[in-house]
Design a protein around this nucleic acid. Structure first.
Lengths: 226, 226
DNA sequence: CGGTTATGTTAACTAATCATTAAGTATCAA
DNA sequence: TTGATACTTAATGATTAGTTAACATAACCG
């Protein structure tokens, strides 16, 4: 993963801590932003759209738990991971933190290496969670939930049959699907269609997505090739 | 959140997988129940009333998709989250899965930490939906308490069905809802209405709120788009 | 309680899109 | 070269959604 695409928002009222964490994260190439109180944090979060928020629990005015609850209410931050920063032995806030919707916590005093590795593991989780509902291959991405296909330059919404056919082929890039297989998996066992129908749908996919992705194997079938 | 109040039903034909997940979830304090086939799953679901069902797609007799469809028909499981367990990129039933009304996917091989965090986030979503008093997306805001919709320029009060339909679509902007899903979630499982009814309600929403928010996917369903 | 209005549903029709086929052409492999 | 197989195009057919108005039902209100 390229760290420079990752945005992290740091929230702490102590200037020193803020600078310390900030320095370490920037060394790792993360994009960072800092806020020194809850109100500022929420404002900044809206604009900055961070992937991760590191939030001190003990803060004046509005404490971390409260800030976290507020942040969780923002729909645009649904995917954002929130982690608390707590002084050791602050058990109460840990529990309350999870109620407020935090994903993890980091204890003070902060050890840079631990912090970084923790952040990496949190981000890995984010990435893995994101991947699940996609089929990805050869620079293309199918979003099954949104029923959309993303190419390098555009996003398209395909008709049902085309979409299903593409899903099938892209589910195993490089693997050949026989015409028979395609028929049973896309059209089902009941419906009987002539072979040309597959060709036409392949053609439409070639038109919309690109010729080279779809390889014909004469007498055998088709495959998706990156 | 107190995990011990959360009930999770696990369905898989492989004894090992079942035990493995079960162990991990029990470690976290969740209440669990296990079923090894579809029929058992449905029976158990009725009695156990789980908050979350983790359902293997590949099963003999009745596959996960089929089980999911059946489960979705039970009115008492309306609030239950159903998530599929699939071998990564392996099967095509992923696509059919969303048609059946699953909420999410978890890919095998299962990583305990990911599973747990996934479950937490699913449950958080459930909780949020219960607590939340507004839905926001694409410049629109629904106030669930006041039963009002705010657009950029005006505030409107929609009839029940229209309101519920809008809530459903806006609860997950971008996500496609199949007609079947819409029917069960807005009209319930008992009432039978003709397909045109959905169209008419969509039309009214388009009229009142704006055409472009509501995207038709022929043969699939509708989605809300910002 | 009626009468009124607002909402929900349906039917019937129209429109649009998608899927399929047919037919001619191109390509490949034996 | 030739026969089989795939590609392409356009036309047709089928399916699905949009629209409208009418009817039914529920909610509202004096």
């Amino acid at each position: 993963m390229n760290n420079s695409r990752i945005k992290i928002l740091l929230v702490d009222d102590e200037e020193d801590t803020l600078e310390f964490i900030n320095y370490n994260l920037q060394q790792e190439g993360f994009q960072t932003a800092c806020a020194s109180d809850g109100v500022e944090a929420i404002e900044l979060a809206k604009i900055f759209q961070p992937n991760l928020i590191v939030l001190d629990v003990m803060m004046p005015i509005m404490d971390g738990v409260e800030v976290c609850s507020e942040l969780r209410k923002l729909p645009e931050l649904k995917q954002t991971i929130i982690t608390f920063l707590t002084a050791r032995h602050e058990d109460y806030s840990q529990i309350a933190g999870f109620d407020a919707g935090a994903d993890d916590y980091i204890s003070k005093p902060i050890k840079p290496k631990l912090l970084i590795s923790k952040i990496h593991s949190l981000l890995r989780r984010l990435q893995e969670e994101e991947i699940k509902n996609y089929i990805e291959a050869g620079g293309l991405k199918i979003d099954l939930i949104q029923h959309l296909v993303f190419t390098q330059d555009k996003e398209l919404s395909l008709p049902k049959k085309e979409f299903n056919l593409l899903c099938l082929l892209m589910s195993k890039p490089g693997r050949v699907f026989t015409r028979e297989e395609i028929l049973t998996k896309v059209w089902g066992t009941e419906t009987i269609v002539v072979d040309r129908t597959i060709d036409v749908h392949i053609r439409k996919l070639r038109e919309k997505i690109g010729n080279d992705f779809f390889v014909t194997l004469k007498g055998v079938g088709y495959k998706f090739q990156a």
